[in-house]
Every structure is written in structure tokens, then in C-alpha cells.
């Protein structure tokens, strides 16, 4: 028996919009810790890790650890039928091959049930080691989205370099080249407008912009994004989900042959 009641149902809608273009089918895992997912894109270049902690739900019942295979496009279709202010409850019964999403309007005058078929998915679960990153950049998520979009009109890849000068996003393409440098800026009115750069060592890595642009679909989840870089590791692009957890995207760098 599974029953997860999320008062801020819009969070789940935003999570699906953030990941559904990257991953087609995925297993959602439910345990005492929370509702989580780990999945790679079909070419194994990017990985998404989602956690919605149990404490973030108004009611959280999960009698035993369970893994439920879902087609994210179908799940998104169903969640789009929930209003932005609706309370969403996810319900499942042991051994059932379906899951039910219940949408309640804030005034309780409309209650809808959507039943979705589950699927069997063979997925590999990867161990993500704790790592010391060479540089961690925290910046407004809308600014990061803007930079990725702007650069992708010039080139296909972005070089992200962190030095003591700041963080530089560079690209090059048939029509020319572009460089965008952000310096640390903490003298802003609101904390969510700050750019904070922690650097242990200078680092420079190249990534496919197509994936970065896909990650920025998580922008509505958080005003800030954290980009963690190390020369030996995939970059981590993290959007915190207020009070509940996070969606983290890992992207393997492009490597000189």
C-alpha cells in the first residue's frame, strides 16, 4: 500500500516537465526516505537523480520499498490534468499494475482520479560517489538558462571554465564565437540574485549544449542552480526543490581524443 499526499501538487508537475524530455521510461522508487528516481538518457550521456523526501509530503505511507516503472510522457499527460493549485495524491496497491493520481482542488469541490498503467523496466542503478569538486558555482537559474539558450544559437558545445576571475561560458560555431563571463556577485538585494563561486582549483570542461538546455527545463523548480565541476567527473547541475529535495542532472564531459 502506497499513499503519498503532496499539498503543493505543482511541484510534481514541474518535476515531470523537467525530466520527461531527457528520460522516456523510468522506475520511481518509494521507500521510507522518500519518492525518488534515478535514470539515464537513452545514450547514457546524462543521468537524472530526483529525491522528494517523505517529510515534504503531508501524508506519506509506503509500507514496503517499491519500484514502479512509468512512462514519463504518459505520466506528464496525466499530471497536466491537475490544476496548479491542486493537491496531488499518488496511490498504489501491492501487486497492482496501475497507479492512481488523485487531484483535489484547493476548495475540495473537484476531485479527479487518473489511473495509469505501470510498466516493467530493466534499469541499472548506479552508485554516485561523494566527491570533492574543483569548483562550485551557484547562480540564478534563469540566468543559467538564458546563457545556455544564447550559446546554443552559436555553437553545439559549451566550455565552462572557472578561474579566480569568475566563471566563463564559451562556445564556437560556423558563424563565430561567444564568451560570457560571470563574476562573483553577492552585493544584491535578494539572495536568489547572487552569483557565488567557490573554487578549490581552476577547472575547464566541455559539454554538449543540447543536454544543458534540456536540464534548464527544471528552472521553474528553483530560483537558483548549483553547478559542480571537477576535471575527472560528470558535471552536476542541481535544482533544489524547496523543503523537499532536489533534481540533479549529471552530464559526462566531452573528452579530447
Amino acid at each position: 500500500m502506497l499513499e503519498l499526499r503532496l499539498v503543493q501538487g505543482s511541484l510534481l508537475k514541474k518535476v515531470l516537465e523537467a525530466i520527461k524530455d531527457l528520460v522516456t521510461d523510468a522506475n520511481f522508487d518509494c521507500s521510507a526516505t522518500g519518492f525518488s528516481l534515478q535514470a539515464m538518457d537513452s545514450s547514457h550521456v546524462a543521468l537524472v537523480a530526483l529525491l522528494l523526501r517523505s517529510e515534504g509530503f503531508e501524508h506519506y505511507r509506503c509500507d514496503r520499498n517499491i519500484s514502479m516503472g512509468m512512462n514519463l510522457n504518459n505520466m506528464s499527460k496525466m499530471l497536466k490534468c491537475a490544476g496548479n493549485d491542486d493537491i496531488i495524491t499518488i496511490k498504489g496497491d501491492d501487486g497492482s499494475d496501475t497507479i492512481t493520481f488523485m487531484f483535489e482542488s484547493p476548495t475540495q469541490d473537484k476531485i479527479a482520479d487518473f489511473e495509469m498503467k505501470l510498466m516493467d523496466i530493466d534499469s541499472e542503478h548506479l552508485g554516485i560517489p561523494e566527491a570533492e569538486y574543483h569548483a562550485i558555482v551557484r547562480m540564478p537559474s534563469a540566468e543559467f538558462s538564458r546563457i545556455c539558450k544564447d550559446l546554443s544559437s552559436i555553437g553545439d558545445t559549451v566550455v565552462i571554465s572557472v578561474t579566480k576571475e569568475g566563471v566563463k561560458f564559451s562556445t564556437r560555431g560556423d558563424i563565430g564565437a561567444a564568451n560570457i563571463v560571470l563574476r562573483q556577485n553577492t552585493t544584491v538585494d535578494k539572495p536568489e540574485e547572487a552569483t557565488i563561486i567557490e573554487m578549490n582549483e581552476p577547472v575547464s570542461l566541455t559539454f554538449a549544449l543540447r543536454y544543458m538546455n534540456s536540464f534548464t527545463k527544471a528552472t521553474p523548480l528553483s530560483s537558483m542552480v548549483t553547478i559542480s565541476l571537477s576535471s575527472e567527473l560528470p558535471v552536476v547541475v542541481e535544482y533544489k526543490i524547496a523543503e523537499m529535495g532536489y533534481v540533479r542532472f549529471y552530464l559526462a564531459p566531452k573528452i579530447e581524443e
Binding site: M40, H44, V45, A46, L47, E124, H125, L126, G127, I128, P129, T157, T206, A208, L233, P234, Y250, A252, P253, K254, I255, E256, E257
Partner: peptide, 14 residues
Amino acid sequence: DPKQGNILSFFKQV
């Protein structure tokens, strides 16, 4: 051009 890396070469299956 640099070659695209693969997640599976960084993170191992558990």
C-alpha cells in the same frame, strides 16, 4: 573534435 564521454565510464552499477 572532443569525443562525448559516457556516464557509465564514471559511475558503476550497484
